[in-house]
Design a protein around this nucleic acid. Structure first.
Length: 269
DNA sequence: AGCTCATGGCGAG
DNA sequence: TCGCCCTGAGCTG
């Protein structure tokens, strides 16, 4: 679920339901009981995202910092909240809506300064309008690390996860093992602007689609496909299947403890 | 019932 | 680079 587009969407969804609302806040699971007690009956003033980090604002009381990690989930419901399951770390509720957070890596009440420190250690986020790719380029263009690892490094660029990494490299025909410093400036500019577009569409649709209109199964006269993570993609989790463009076998490898996917023909060294 | 795997990230060594 | 933390779906038996 959670790459940056998911978290930005969650920020929007929180604002739509809870901004300006006085909330009942609880931690049925118990691991956030102290924070919940301080926040109960307070007003949510705003919600924002930076990369994969979600910040729920409660005025002078502080911020709830949420990071879903690999397993975390946030589910919204309408109406009065039902009795919570034991795994719910944080429940926010009004008489007409509720949100349940389960399995996050982080759920903590933090101060403005602590929040600022988190922003400071994150790279630019394609989904934050004031961020720009220049800072990321400075790191990438000096680095011997592979571009595949750099794209996953949240200090370099915030919000890109394993799906967007694989897909954006495919869309630009870039071998994932190329060193950052071997990328050209124009290649990087195209990657950055493409990420802005792809991730904005991800926020709108709440899923990742990366296949260009001319490469959809309909456009290519092939049977419809359903990728098992809910979106339409070129290479992610398609190991040993045929590339939609050239028919070669999609490859997979471990890179920094994550599964990397690429087409050796479309993304030649 | 138990295993494996997943769109993350941290700290130890 | 490894092990670990968080949860749930989809297998296997």
């Amino acid at each position: 679920m959670p790459e940056g587009h998911t978290i930005h969407r969650l920020a929007l969804d929180h604002r739509a339901r809870f901004e300006g609302e006085r909330l009942r806040v609880s931690s049925p699971q118990g691991k956030f009981s102290d924070g919940a007690a301080l926040l109960d009956r307070q007003v949510m003033t705003t919600a924002e995202a930076h990369g994969k980090h979600l910040f729920l604002g409660f005025g002078g009381t502080g911020w709830v910092h949420v990071h879903l990690g690999l397993f975390g989930k946030l589910d919204f419901g309408a109406g009065a909240a039902p009795p919570p399951a034991e795994t719910v770390r944080l429940r926010l509720a009004t008489p007409t809506a509720y949100a349940d957070l389960r399995g996050p890596t982080t759920c903590a009440l933090i101060t403005d300064e602590e929040k600022r420190a988190i922003h400071d250690r994150l790279g630019p986020d394609p989904l934050r309008p004031d961020d720009d790719g220049e800072r990321a380029w400075k790191r990438i263009s000096r680095s011997r690390t592979t571009v595949a690892a750099l794209l996953m490094d949240q200090k370099v660029i915030a919000g890109v996860g394993n799906v967007y990494r694989a897909e954006v490299l495919f869309r630009h025909g870039i071998d994932p093992y190329r060193a950052g410093r071997d990328l050209t400036r124009s290649e990087w500019d195209l990657i950055w602007s493409d990420l802005i577009e792809l991730m904005r569409e991800g926020v709108r649709n709440n899923r990742i689609d990366t296949v260009r209109p001319e490469h959809t199964p309909e456009a290519m006269g092939r049977p419809p496909r359903v990728d098992d993570h809910g979106g339409e993609v070129y290479v992610y989790r398609r190991a040993r299947q045929a590339c939609h463009i050239c028919g070669d076998e999609i490859r997979t490898a471990d890179l920094a403890a994550r599964n990397l996917f690429w087409c050796p023909t479309c993304q030649r060294p």
